[in-house]
């Protein structure tokens, strides 16, 4: 394990840093996500993710000023609720459910161990699978999220690597869920935009876990 602060606890500030890093990553990769989505979807994923995570950071700023963020659970629950309220498409409810489930698992504690956050991520991904009905191999965000949670035992950096690897692994797959599924064989050869943004979210987590 190379993460310097892997064992450090997660409080509301650290959870906010994760969301801020995610917002930066989505903004920096907006064009790329949109390009990927125009190959096999409807070219709105980059804009939606940027818009959604910017809304998350501004909702968190407001809540912080009002003293409502008492722990990492309240941060991630609010982030999830904001994504559901602001994004639309399939990615809003799916990412929103993911973060809300994480937040609910963390509960009202002022700070939690990384192991509790890992547990929350597992619950979050379960929520995504239940809501979207996708399994590994369907060429969706689950192809990045599931390997990531499977690798959590080895730390957040490993989970992020697994998500990246999973996203790249969607290239040869044929989509069976979402809008890309209409392409059938023609979806083969393109990386899934949802799996790509999921890897960005995990990358932001690893960044904050390792660099603080």
């Amino acid at each position: 394990m190379s993460d310097r602060n892997t064992e450090a606890k997660w409080d509301s500030n650290r959870a906010r840093h994760w969301m801020a890093a995610a917002a930066r990553a989505m903004t920096e990769n907006e064009q790329r996500l949109t390009e990927l989505d125009s190959a096999i979807g409807d070219a709105d994923h980059g804009g939606n993710m940027r818009r959604g995570f910017q809304a998350v950071t501004s909702a968190l700023d407001t809540a912080q000023d009002e003293g409502q963020l008492t722990g990492p659970g309240s941060v991630l629950t609010l982030a999830g609720r904001t994504l559901i309220s602001k994004v639309g498409g399939a990615s809003g409810p799916l990412y929103g459910t993911l973060l809300r489930r994480v937040g609910k698992t963390l509960g009202d504690e002022a700070e939690v161990d990384p192991a509790v956050l890992s547990e929350g991520l597992r619950a979050g991904v379960e929520g995504v699978v239940k809501l979207g009905g996708a399994a590994v191999g369907d060429k969706t965000m689950v192809d990045a999220l599931q390997p990531a949670v499977d690798a959590l035992e080895s730390g957040f950096a490993a989970a992020s690597q697994a998500a990246l690897h999973g996203a790249e692994g969607t290239v040869p797959l044929r989509a069976r869920k979402g809008r890309a599924s209409y392409l059938g064989e023609r979806s083969v050869g393109h990386q899934d935009p949802g799996a790509t943004s999921a890897a960005l979210l995990l990358g932001a987590l690893a960044e904050v876990a390792g660099d603080e």
């Binding site: 709105d44 804009g47 639309g88 498409g89």
Partner: peptide
Amino acid sequence: PGEVFTSPVPD
């Protein structure tokens, strides 16, 4: 009405 080609939100 949602964003262009993006579903509206539950709110």
